[in-house]
């Protein structure tokens, strides 16, 4: 017997899944998720999700990029190999600014890109939710809600009851 990962239920319309999500949120569950074939506006609030942490990665990437750009210009012009170009000082924040600016953008973009992978825990080639027998329908016209057994409030019978209460169909235990 394999370990239980959680329980999953199927819904027919975006409105159903939206209100179901609100009820699960209000019931106080933390480790649960909603699967939909397309983005549903306002679902973040309905699930009680906090804002994404990706912007933090972007900001850190940008700051590192800015100082890297400035450092490269300072190291080459002022420290390692002095050259007078166009009668300008060896180092000045003015003419190095475009370099620092481009580095800011580049590393901020990298920060965003990898931040997205890190916060989403990607790449992830296998997820237990795919064991759900109605999984293919979720990429088409059905909506699913899953409560994971890792949640501190998880209780097999109570969760089953809750999923039925909020209008879920095809309730099924998912194997890990």
């Amino acid at each position: 017997m394999t370990k239980e990962f959680g329980q999953m239920a199927l819904f027919d319309t975006p409105a159903d899944i939206f209100h179901a999500a609100e009820k699960v949120r209000d019931a106080g569950f933390k480790k649960w998720d909603v699967f939909t074939p397309f983005p549903i506006h306002g679902m973040d609030d309905a699930m009680g999700l906090k804002r994404s942490r990706v912007p933090l990665f972007t900001l850190i990437g940008g700051i590192i990029g800015f100082f890297t750009g400035m450092f490269i210009a300072w190291y080459m012009g002022e420290y390692d190999y002095n050259l007078i170009v166009g009668g300008k000082p060896y180092f000045s924040p003015i003419f190095t600014f475009p370099v620092a600016y481009e580095m800011t953008i580049l590393l901020a973009a990298f920060g965003t890109f990898f931040g997205m992978f890190i916060t989403n825990m990607l790449p992830q080639h296998y997820h237990s939710a795919m064991n759900y027998k109605n999984w293919p329908q979720i990429t088409d016209d059905k909506f699913a809600l899953m409560i994971e057994s890792k949640d501190s409030k998880y209780d097999k019978e109570k969760v089953k009851e809750l999923l039925r209460e909020i209008g879920g169909k095809e309730i099924e235990e998912i194997e890990e």
Binding site: G86, I94, F97
Partner: peptide, 12 residues
């Protein structure tokens, strides 16, 4: 604003 300053600064 920076571009305007920068071009003039660089051309001198």
């Amino acid at each position: 604003s920076f571009c305007q300053y920068f071009l003039i600064y660089n051309a001198n």
